[in-house]
Design a protein around this nucleic acid. Structure first.
Length: 922
RNA sequence: GCGGGGGUGCCGGAGUGGUCAAACGGGCAGGGCUUAGGACCCUGUGGCGCAGGCCUACGCGAGUUCGAAACUCGUCCCCCGCACCA
C-alpha cells in the first residue's frame, strides 16, 4: 500500500532529522573540495513572501546539488538589520498610522501584543529575523545556522570597523561635501520612502554665473553654461521683490527663496536689503566672460522659487526667451552659437510647433526637445573663440569649469520639480553636508582593480557582465555615513553611523569565521585580530597574548577562513547590481589579496503575482508561510524553480502552484509504488528505452544545474521523466527491476528541488543514508541506447500517423494494415544519406529496377531529413510485432503487420519508408 | 538622455541556420475512467484537405542563403536601472 502523501508531516519529519543530525553544518575537511555560496542577506522589516522564497531557494537548490556531488558545501545566512527604514516604521506605528498598522497587523499577522512593542525599531527587526529564520527552516533550506548573526552583532561591528580602518589607511575614504534632500524639521537627510511628495524630483546642479552690476552681483542660474555666448539680455521678474544679500564676501541680488536655499548650501547669507524686480529693469550688467554690457529685461515667467530667480536669456536656443523678446517687441537679435546656421533654432521650433505666445504649454515641449537635440548632437559654432567646434556637452563643462576657476561661477543645487515634502509635512531643501564621509568609488586605480576583478569572474547571466562593467565605471564617490538608523559607528567620527549598504560589502568573509568569533568578547576583536585571521598579518602568539584569545583558537579561525575563501558564488537580485554587488567587488579588491576575490555572481529577476508586480506596501504579496501551509514547501520550491530561470521574472499563479503540487504528488505516488513492486519480468526493449531516457535526462539536468538553469533542469528531471514513465506504464507491464532502477536515479535527481519528499521516498526504497548527501546521478553513456530510442520513436510516430488518418478519413478502424519499407528502399535511403551520387546508386544492380522511385525519393527528401540511424527490416518488424498487442489495444482494432506486402488494396505500401511504415485503415 | 533586456500560438514560455505548425506548462474542447468528479488518462486546439498532405505564420520592412523564427541592416514598440536607498 502506498503510504499517503502527507506533505506537511513528511516535511516536519525530515527537517527535524536534518537538524538533529546536523547534516548541513559544514566544517573544513581537507579531504573534500569546498563549495561556498552566499545569497544577499535579507533586511527583515516585514514578513517573507514568495518573492523572497525564490531568492533563497535558488542557492539552496545549488547547495544541495553540489553537496550531492560530493562537495563540502557552506551555505550560511544572517540578517541585515542596519539602516533607517525600520525607524520610519516604528515611528508610524507609534503614531498609529492606519496603513502601517494594517500592513503589520493584517498582512503580516503580527499579534497585537507584539505589535504594541513595534515602537522600538530593534524589536521589529528581531521579530522578523526570527520569522525569516523559521520560514527558511520550514522551506527545507540546507543552511548552516551555526554561522547566523545580525549586522548589529558587536563582533560584526568590530569586523566592519576593521574594514574601514583598512579603507582609511589606503586613502579610499575621504571627508567631503555632499548635497542631499534634507528635512529641516526632522533635521535629517531624507530618502525616497520618507517623502510625502516629490519622490521623483532629481537634484539638478545649476551653474550660477555671476554678472556684475557695480558692487552688486546678479547670479543667473543655468543648466546650459555654454549658452553664455548667445546671451542677449537678462530676465528678472518685475513683480517679485528681490533681496540684496551678503553671500560669503559678495553682495548678491536674488529672490528671497533663493537666499533661504543658499543657507542650506553652506553659504553665509545675510540679507541686507530689498530691491524690487521692477527697479532692476532697464539697467545693465556685465557678463564675466566676454565683458559685454547686458540689458536687464522683464519677464513674468521667471519663477522666484526656482534657482536664483535671475535668468539668462538666450533667444536663439531657448524658445521661452525667443518668445518673451518677441512679446516685448525688443530689437535684440538672437545670437546663434550652436551649429553653423544663421537662423535661430528656437525660432524655427516655435514656428514648426505653431507656438504663438509665452503662455503656450507647448513651450515646455519645445524647450525639452531643443535641449535634447543640442545636448546630444550639437557643436559650438566655429566663430566662438576657445570653444568653437566643441561638442555642446564638452563646451558646457568647460565653460562652467573656466568660470568657476576664475571665481565667476558657482554651483546651485535645485530640485527638478517642486515642492518636495517630507513625510512629516515639512518642505525639504537641498543641503550640503560638509563633513560627510565618502567611499571613493571614483578613484581611478580602485576602479581599475575592480574591473580586473570583474574580468576574471563568471557572471550569470553572462550578458550582465557588461552591465557590471558599466556600473563600476559610473559609480562615483559614495556617501557612506548616516546620522540616524541602526548600525556600526564610524570609527573616525562617532557622530556618524556607517550606512547600511556600506556595512555589508564583505560580510561573506565574516560567515566563515562567525561561529567562532561570536563566542569571543567583542572587545578582544581588535583590528590586529582580524588582520591576522583574515590577512595573515602579524603573529598569532603575540596576538594571543595581547587579546587573551587562545592561540589554538586563533589558528583555528584563520584555518577556517583559508579553507572556505574565496567565495565561489554570490547570488542576489537584479536591483543590487549597481550598488551592493558592485560594492562587494570594490571592497574585496581593496581589502583582500587577489586569490580571495569572489569568483562568480548570479543575478535574479523579480517576482510577479498573477501577472502584477509584487508590492508589500500595496498588500499585493503572498506570504511564504501561507504558501507553504497551503501547498507544502516542496511544491512551493518546485514551482518557484520551474516557473522561470533564476534571472528571469517569475509569476506566482495560484492555479499553477496547485497544479505543481498535484504533479508532485503524482511523482511521490509513482515512486512509492515502485518501491513496493514485485515481479520477475525479463528485460525488454521498452525497459532499455526507459533507462536510456533517464540517462539522457540526467545529462541534461546536470548541464542545466551547472549553469544555474533550474527551470531547464526541472524540465528534464521532472516533467520529461513523468511523461516517460507514464508512457512506459501505458506501453507495457512495469518490470520491477527497471522501475526500481529508474526511480532510484529519479528520486536522487529531484532531491535538490524537493528534498523532503525525496528523503521520504529514499527511505521507503530501503536506504539508510540521507538523500541530501547521497550521490547525485551522472549519466551512464553505456545505458544510452539510440537504437531502442529510434524504435520507440517509430511507434510513437506511427500512432500519431494513424490517429491523424483516422481523423481525416473519419474511419473507425477494424483492421489496420502496416507495410514495412522493403530492403531496397532502406539501402537507397542509406546511400542518399551518405551522399552517394545518383549515378553510382543506379549502377547498383539491386537498385536499378527502382530508378524511377529512387529519383522521386531524391526529390522529396533532403539528405539531412533521413534518419541517421536506420533500423533493419527485421529490427523494424520485430519491434512492431512486439508492440502489436499494445497497438491493438490502443486503437481497438486488429493489426495486420506485413513484412512484404501481400494484401494492399489501396497501394499504401508505396508510402513506406524506413521507420515509417505504410498504413492502410479499414 | 545613458546603460541593459526583449517582441514567437488563447496565455506563460522553449527554440538561435534545415528534422518547426513549434518542447514543456496552463487555458479551452471532445472522449475515457467513475456512483460522481475540480483527481487521473487519452485526443484535439493557425487555415485548408473524405489518408499520413498542402498553404500561411514567429513585431514591421529589406537583405544574405538552396533554405531564416533564428544571421545582417533599417524601423516601430515594450520592460528594467540611473544612486546615497533596502
Amino acid at each position: 500500500m502506498v503510504k499517503e502523501y502527507d506533505v506537511r508531516e513528511i516535511e516536519k519529519k525530515w527537517i527535524k532529522k536534518w537538524a538533529d543530525a546536523k547534516v548541513f553544518e559544514a566544517s573544513p575537511d581537507p579531504e573534500k573540495k569546498k563549495f561556498y555560496l552566499t545569497v544577499a542577506f535579507p533586511y527583515p522589516s516585514g514578513s517573507m513572501h514568495v518573492g523572497h522564497g525564490r531568492t533563497y531557494t535558488v542557492p539552496d537548490v545549488i547547495a544541495r546539488y553540489k553537496r550531492m556531488q560530493g562537495y563540502n558545501v557552506l551555505f550560511p545566512m544572517a540578517w541585515h538589520v542596519t539602516g533607517s527604514p525600520v525607524l520610519g516604521i516604528a515611528e508610524r506605528i507609534k503614531k498609529k498610522d492606519e496603513k502601517t498598522l494594517k500592513i503589520y497587523g493584517g498582512l503580516y499577522k503580527v499579534p497585537p501584543e507584539t505589535l504594541a512593542n513595534f515602537t522600538n525599531p530593534e524589536t521589529i527587526v528581531k521579530y522578523f529575523s526570527n520569522e525569516y529564520h523559521e520560514n527558511m527552516v520550514d522551506m527545507g533550506y540546507s543552511i548552516d545556522w551555526t554561522r547566523e548573526f545580525l549586522s548589529i552583532t558587536p563582533q560584526y561591528s568590530k569586523y566592519v570597523e576593521w574594514q574601514y580602518a583598512h579603507l582609511h589607511e589606503q586613502n579610499l575614504i575621504k571627508m567631503g561635501e555632499h548635497p542631499v534632500r534634507y528635512c529641516p524639521s526632522c533635521n535629517n537627510p531624507v530618502g525616497d520612502h520618507d517623502l510625502l511628495q516629490g519622490d521623483k524630483a532629481e537634484v539638478n546642479d545649476f551653474t550660477i554665473i555671476k554678472f556684475r552690476m557695480g558692487d552688486l552681483i546678479l547670479p543667473a542660474a543655468t543648466l546650459r553654461a555654454e549658452t553664455i555666448f548667445g546671451l542677449t539680455n537678462m530676465w528678472v521678474n518685475p513683480e517679485v521683490n528681490y533681496v540684496k544679500a551678503k553671500v560669503d564676501n559678495e553682495t548678491w541680488v536674488i529672490s528671497k527663496e533663493a537666499a533661504e536655499k543658499l543657507k542650506y548650501l553652506n553659504k553665509k547669507v545675510e540679507i541686507i536689503g530689498e530691491i524690487k524686480g521692477s527697479e532692476l529693469i532697464g539697467k545693465t550688467c556685465t557678463d564675466p566672460l566676454l565683458k559685454k554690457e547686458i540689458p536687464i529685461l522683464p519677464a513674468v515667467f521667471v519663477n522666484p522659487d526656482y534657482a536664483t530667480g535671475i535668468v539668462m536669456s538666450v533667444p536663439a536656443h531657448a524658445p521661452y526667451d525667443y518668445i518673451a523678446l518677441k512679446d516685448l517687441k525688443s530689437d535684440l537679435k538672437p545670437i546663434v552659437i550652436i551649429g553653423e546656421g544663421r537662423d535661430a533654432p528656437a525660432e524655427k521650433m516655435i514656428r514648426e510647433m505653431g507656438i504663438s505666445d509665452q503662455k503656450d504649454p507647448k513651450l515646455e515641449e519645445a524647450t525639452a526637445q531643443l535641449y535634447k537635440e543640442e545636448h546630444g548632437k550639437g557643436h559650438m559654432s566655429k566663430w566662438i573663440k576657445g570653444y568653437g567646434g566643441l561638442a555642446v556637452r564638452t563646451a558646457r563643462e568647460k565653460v562652467a569649469a573656466d568660470l568657476t576657476g576664475a571665481g565667476d561661477a558657482d554651483i546651485f543645487y535645485e530640485f527638478s520639480e517642486s515642492p518636495v515634502v517630507c513625510r512629516c509635512g515639512t518642505r525639504c531643501y537641498i543641503k550640503i553636508l560638509k563633513d560627510q564621509w565618502f567611499l571613493e568609488y571614483g578613484n581611478t586605480e580602485w576602479k581599475e582593480k575592480t574591473q580586473e576583478c570583474l574580468k576574471q569572474m563568471e557572471i550569470v547571466p553572462s550578458e550582465l557582465k557588461q552591465n557590471f562593467s558599466y556600473f563600476i565605471d559610473w559609480l562615483q564617490d559614495w556617501a557612506c555615513t548616516r546620522r540616524v538608523g541602526l548600525g556600526t559607528r564610524f570609527p573616525y567620527d562617532s557622530k556618524w553611523l556607517i550606512e547600511p549598504l556600506s556595512d555589508s560589502t564583505i560580510y561573506m568573509a565574516f560567515y566563515t569565521i562567525s561561529k567562532h568569533v561570536k563566542k569571543i568578547d567583542a572587545a578582544k576583536l581588535t583590528p590586529e585580530f582580524y588582520d591576522y585571521v583574515l590577512l595573515g598579518k602579524g603573529k598569532s602568539e603575540e596576538l594571543s597574548k595581547k587579546s587573551g584569545v587562545a592561540r589554538a583558537e586563533i589558528e583555528n579561525i584563520r584555518a577556517e577562513f583559508l579553507y572556505w575563501y574565496p567565495l565561489d558564488w554570490r547570488l542576489s537580485a537584479k536591483d543590487l547590481v549597481g550598488n551592493h554587488l558592485s560594492f562587494m567587488l570594490f571592497h574585496h579588491t581593496a581589502v583582500f589579496p587577489k586569490d580571495k576575490w569572489p569568483k562568480g555572481i548570479v543575478v535574479f529577476g523579480m517576482g510577479l503575482l498573477e501577472g502584477n508586480k509584487m508590492s508589500s506596501s500595496k498588500g499585493n504579496v503572498v506570504l511564504l508561510s501561507d504558501a507553504m501551509r497551503d501547498n507544502g514547501s516542496d511544491a512551493v520550491r518546485l514551482f518557484l524553480m520551474s516557473n522561470a530561470e533564476p534571472w528571469q521574472d517569475f509569476d506566482w499563479r495560484e492555479n499553477l502552484v496547485k497544479n505543481t503540487g498535484r504533479k508532485l504528488k503524482q511523482f511521490y505516488d509513482q515512486a512509492y509504488a515502485a518501491s513496493e513492486l514485485k515481479n520477475d519480468i525479463p528485460e525488454r526493449d521498452i525497459d532499455r528505452w526507459l533507462i536510456s531516457r533517464i540517462q539522457e535526462a540526467t545529462e541534461r539536468t546536470n548541464t542545466a544545474l551547472e549553469a544555474f538553469q533550474t527551470r531547464k533542469a526541472i524540465q528534464s528531471a521532472f516533467f520529461d521523466l513523468i511523461n516517460d514513465l507514464m508512457w512506459y506504464t501505458r506501453r507495457c507491464e512495469p518490470r520491477t527491476k527497471t522501475v526500481k532502477e529508474f526511480c532510484d536515479q529519479w528520486v536522487r535527481l529531484m532531491a535538490p528541488f524537493t528534498p523532503c519528499t525525496c528523503e521520504e521516498l529514499w527511505e521507503a526504497m530501503g536506504h539508510k543514508d540521507y538523500i541530501s548527501v547521497a550521490e547525485y546521478p551522472i549519466s551512464d553513456p553505456k545505458k544510452i541506447d539510440p537504437i531502442v530510442d529510434a524504435k520507440e520513436n517509430m511507434i510513437k510516430n506511427l500512432m500519431e500517423d494513424i490517429q491523424h488518418i483516422m481523423e481525416i478519413s473519419k474511419i473507425k478502424p477494424e483492421r489496420i494494415h502496416m507495410y514495412l519499407a522493403p530492403e531496397w528502399k532502406r539501402k537507397a535511403f542509406a546511400l542518399l544519406r551518405s551522399c552517394t551520387p545518383m549515378k553510382q546508386i543506379m549502377s547498383d544492380p539491386e537498385m536499378k529496377p527502382y530508378g524511377k522511385e529512387i529519383s522521386q525519393i531524391m526529390q522529396k527528401y533532403r539528405r539531412d531529413e533521413i534518419p541517421e540511424l536506420m533500423l533493419t527490416l527485421d529490427e523494424e518488424y520485430d519491434t512492431l510485432k512486439g508492440a502489436q498487442k499494445f497497438l491493438e489495444k490502443e486503437f481497438n482494432a486488429e493489426i495486420d503487420l506485413q513484412k512484404t506486402p501481400t494484401k494492399d488494396p489501396e497501394n499504401k505500401a508505396r508510402f513506406a519508408i524506413p521507420q515509417k511504415p505504410g498504413i492502410y485503415i479499414k
